[in-house]
Design a protein around this nucleic acid. Structure first.
Lengths: 242, 242
DNA sequence: AAGACGAAAACTGTATACAAACGTGAGAAG
DNA sequence: CTTCTCACGTTTGTATACAGTTTTCGTCTT
């Protein structure tokens, strides 16, 4: 039951080329795993050298990432990892709170045995990553869990939006997260899977809503305007959340 | 009270460069005005020649359009105007029905005197376009009206999603529209402006919802699977809606 | 010592050249 | 007459060269 690359990219809503663009996949993953901090400069030449491709490929990859708001492109000044403002952070979570509960409801109505199995396997992977202290990987998987639910809901258009919002959440968490642990995820996600398994739409919707409110409430925006700390990030007082 | 190009592009949620990429702006506009039919082939060389730029610019523009789902990019096979499936069409309108009513509610709470004035001026433009039988222009302006409301709601993240959905609606209407007139728009839009002027949030939300349901119900999907009529469109039995 | 200026280095923006893939049509075989 | 094959023309994919901009850093002035 393997699917083609083209189909995979269709599900993810991006150009077929991008799945085999090492810059796109590599930088995206590094951002989602918080190995690249917000504001980090992304020089085309460096990326080209690192991935062993020409600047042409680098540019198409960066442009795609810019469309997902994971990278900021300023004319004549190149690319950096996006640095979402408190406002953008709030908006992203508000949008998630609008879209995802409904998506979870729909997913609960449609979830089949295979879906539940895939979700449980995924939750196990999340658990392992947490246990092994791979907080970056755990965060990426945690986001992917939300995307999986959106996909079960079988609304590609909305699933794509959710995927975009979830990706941006990694950056937002890097900037504004206050707690030291994401342990809450584990319980929430398992409860959600249970609701989906029981096809309990109302419960799934409510669990998702409260889960997102919980996440949102763990963000602190009183760090002032961080729009131009392009270098400050790198100077040491930055701690990985989780 | 003029705003910079960069700010304008920020509002629209696209790369700053794109506003001055003639391929992006030109092809986008042509699609929104239904001068380019769904499925139409977009050869890079032709576009480069037409706009007097190199293929480099053409490619970046097409990639951006592909991210907005206005253009489909197939590896080694180039670009064509997107050809949304019935499923995609349904999903786009379902997403609009989820996002826009809430957006209209928020807009009604925030709408100021200047906002209302801008909306009325815009409605007048729409009216003029209809009167002059410029159905393409009327359609584009009609979509832009929805985007304006989303912007008044002051939620850039959601406004951006709505803009994307509205753009795609032009293609969907080109493919699946059944009525000969979009006259209903005029009444609906004016009623919405009135509600916004009165800051009547509930009324605005309800008007937007029914307006979208009205639009959605005017689509007919019983034309079979149109996923591979890349050339059929051009063979003459295609009539512009409106 | 601090700040302004200017040259050089580094980087991005665009065009173009070349390579690879695709599609077409003529011609041969069945 | 139909179908298959192959070569050619066309189109896309990628790398690279060059031009323009920004940034850096040393130097000079105040």
């Amino acid at each position: 039951m393997s699917i083609t690359q083209q189909e995979a990219s269709f599900i993810r809503g991006l150009q077929a080329d991008m799945v085999q663009n090492p810059v796109y996949t590599g930088v995206e993953r590094a951002i989602l795993e918080q190995r690249l901090p917000p504001g980090m400069r992304l020089a085309e030449t460096d990326l080209a050298e690192f991935y062993g491709v020409s600047r042409t490929i680098v540019r198409t990859g960066l442009q795609a990432l810019a469309h997902s708001h994971l990278v900021t492109l300023r004319p004549n000044r190149g690319a950096s990892v996006a640095n979402p403002s408190p406002r953008e952070a709030r908006e992203v979570f508000e949008a998630r709170e609008l879209l995802e509960p409904r998506s979870a409801r729909e997913a609960a109505m449609r979830a089949g045995r295979a879906d539940v199995r895939a979700l449980r396997a995924h939750a196990q992977e999340e658990h392992d990553a947490m246990r092994d202290n791979e907080s970056g990987r755990a965060l990426r998987l945690s986001g992917r869990f939300h995307v999986m639910i959106a996909q079960i809901a079988n609304q590609r258009t909305i699933a794509e939006m959710i995927e975009n919002l979830v990706s941006r959440s990694s950056l937002i968490i890097a900037l504004y997260w206050t707690r030291s642990s994401t342990r809450c995820d584990e319980g929430c996600h398992n409860a959600l899977i249970d609701a989906l398994e029981r096809n309990d739409a109302t419960e799934a919707e409510e669990l998702m809503r409260s889960h997102l409110v919980e996440l949102h409430s763990a963000l602190r925006f009183d760090v002032g305007d961080t729009s131009n700390l392009t270098l400050k990030d790198m100077l040491g007082d930055y701690t990985m959340p989780g």
